[in-house]
Amino acid sequence: MKTQQFTVVDPLGIHARPASQLVAKATPFASSIEVRTEEKAANLKSILGVMGLALKQGSQFTLVVEGEDEEQAFTALTTLLTEMGLAQ
């Protein structure tokens, strides 16, 4: 299992456009990929789940990846999160 903590830096929070890109990136991987906050957890392969967390600028979350291709999935997603300027 691989995890990393992030803080949302995008002023608009995790809105539809970047959420779509994250879900599209996560879906092909076999591993389970989750976004966890203090209260809730969401499947990163679900657009409704990710947006349902309503993460705003400054919100903290943990990315949790577990499964056979967790290395590749983890790298792909952490890269995307930071490249988009969404979270760090």
Binding site: R17, S20, K45, S46, I47, L48
Partner: peptide, 12 residues
């Protein structure tokens, strides 16, 4: 694009 993801959303 977002609408397409909703149609395929595993949580839905």
């Amino acid at each position: 694009e977002a609408h397409l993801l909703v149609v395929n959303d595993p949580e839905l």
